[in-house]
Design a protein around this nucleic acid. Structure first.
Lengths: 346, 346
DNA sequence: TTCTCTACTGTGAACGTTCACAGAAAAGTG
DNA sequence: CACTTTTCTGTGAACGTTCACAGTAGAGAA
């Protein structure tokens, strides 16, 4: 059965061009173009008649023609250089992605999502980007040694990273939450609840979140005069099972710990599983603090006390920095404060 | 401190054009263009010399110039018309998004992510799309009455939806998992484990997942000769708390239920919370089956027995259908089989 | 040989916009 | 009034590609 009335391909006749608008408005191409781009040096009468003609014809600028001559594409890449599994598990990416899309939409700039999981993909994408198909890149890759950042920077592509890029030779703009301060706050919070044997599960130590949250932990311990026992530190990998294993190691190494600061909610979720299996009551026997305020923090019982990262602001700052850089501004960095969200595990 | 060696904006001199390649290879623009586009009617010698010139110059085609003349943009929109909260909570979107990006990347087609949460955004995006800035749209909007689908279809934009679009007048291509069959399998599985009082928490009944999974549930009940008690059916909203509340209502209405089929893992997670609070042991007192095989299914204890939707295949089929439709093919639909993943809750 | 057909190649035009420039009108300025 | 400056408008060229077409060379057929 085939519907002949309106089969598959019926593209609207032909979209109106700037010529059509000019004719309709009784002005020249140039005037229409000026109205389209800010409208300087246009008489009120002309502008009005052009605007009327635009809405009458339903004209929309052809971005390809524009890009061809301006050299700008008026689009931005959101580049994820993570192995596949990370993307799924980490809710942060999703929040960030959404917020960036939103922020860019406010500027009428479309976001091109690119995921470079493998080396080949990375090459293809780098090639695409350096060819000038996007004006700039929002980069998400927490792991160190990612060659994409250096490569793009060297090619002169405007670039803003999410999280402090470590292990890079040159300057890269970035926006990050204050990991160190957030971790510090949480550990002080654990201390304030009366705990004195505070352990931690860190992220991978080649990520800024791994390094800085550990630094915040150590700083708080130093301030409060608690002993900095190395057995209190276990390294995780930001996954739930990683957190579970790390907690088991801690339980074996320091059975007397009465608090646990975990550098991500997902790992905290795993840690809670391990604690429950070991018959430790939370928060009675042991207090647990997470980091991220991800959906996972609400999935636990009791709900997880955690550190909220201001993802919306991180996203809008990333976009702001990137657009500024595209406009010619220098590289810069922004650090945003975190917030402690008190729930049931402390 | 300013680094003067290489400040902010230093864009590589000027990318090579097809002219440069032609000169370098000693042929004409036309020949280079033919090599670029399939390479028909090109002598082996010419092709070889062009390919050498391309890799020597590092030439990359300027897609804007190409699009300007071909009328195609060689890009595709991934359009999400969901209110904000859905996106965060539902891991399916993320999996699907990733898989679509991947599938498109295989064809060297970039994906433009667009999120239309509000009416104004929807209008802006529709305008953008109908202006021909993308060749087609991958649409994700499970709720009914979404005007975007009709609007885009009427504008002749190639379109493939994820999940059966309901409440639409005309034909829309779509790819979906076999919801009815999956639900049916799960309920038969519950029956096979000896349960005879099987309740269900459905999705919203204006979504295909809500409707079809309920239909599968009813079909299985009918086949096995179990009583179709209406008190056994509660409606949820695909959120964790929604599942929790629905389970509470069921516990009150039919205290003797011994199995529960929940139409999403997230709701199942909530349901498990409610069951635990009511001191029902899972799976001893009551068996629970979910749907989606989302990460949430692994976060519960015991881990959730669920129905896996083949997201990778759904994505690749969506992309295949869309590209075919862009190429002129008619609308069509694909239904893909699901798979029961047996874990700890049955 | 001559003609036809096929495989291949080069060239001008076009896509829809912005930009630089030139010129006209209006507005200040002396 | 004349002159300069500012505001405004129109026009040709250019961006880098593909497409249609014309043309060439070689192979095969008559």
């Amino acid at each position: 059965m085939t519907m002949n009335t309106n089969g598959g391909r019926r593209r609207a006749a032909k979209p109106p061009t700037i010529h059509d608008v000019a004719r309709e408005a009784g002005v020249s191409r140039g005037t229409v173009s000026r109205v389209l781009n800010g409208g300087h040096y246009v008489s009120p009468a002309a502008r009005e008649s052009v605007e009327a003609a635009i809405s009458r014809t339903g004209y929309v600028v052809n971005r390809h023609a524009r890009s061809l001559i301006t050299g700008r594409s008026d689009s931005v890449a959101f580049l994820l250089t993570e192995p596949q599994e990370r993307f799924f598990e980490d809710p942060n990416f999703n929040v960030l992605l959404r917020a960036c899309t939103q922020s860019l939409a406010d500027h009428d700039i479309p976001l091109l999502l690119m995921i470079a999981g493998t080396e080949a993909e990375r090459r293809r994408i780098t090639r695409y980007i350096t060819a000038g198909h996007v004006d700039g890149v929002l980069l998400v890759s927490s792991h160190t040694g990612d060659p994409a950042a250096d490569q793009l920077r060297d090619a002169g592509v405007p670039l803003v990273a999410c999280g402090k890029p470590i292990g890079h030779t040159g300057k890269v703009s970035y926006v990050a939450a204050d990991d160190r301060d957030g971790a510090h706050d949480m550990v002080r919070h654990l201390y304030a609840s009366g705990r004195r044997r505070i352990a931690t599960i860190t992220g991978p130590l080649d990520t800024p979140g791994g390094i800085d949250r550990l630094a915040g932990y150590r700083q708080a311990l130093a301030e409060t005069g608690l002993e900095a026992d190395e057995r209190l530190v276990a390294t995780g990998d930001y996954t739930r099972v990683g957190g579970e294993h790390a907690a088991e190691r801690l339980l074996a190494a320091v059975p007397d710990m009465d608090a646990l600061f975990v550098a991500s909610d997902l790992m905290a979720q795993g840690a809670l599983t391990a604690l429950k299996r070991a018959n430790r009551r939370v928060p009675e026997d042991i207090a647990v603090g997470g980091f991220d305020d991800s959906p996972a923090a609400l999935a636990t019982t009791p709900e997880l006390t955690t550190i909220r990262q201001p993802w919306d602001r991180i996203a809008s700052e990333m976009v702001r920095l990137l657009l500024a850089q595209i406009g010619g501004a220098d590289t810069s960095a922004v650090i945003l404060p975190t917030e402690l969200v008190s729930r049931g595990t402390v």
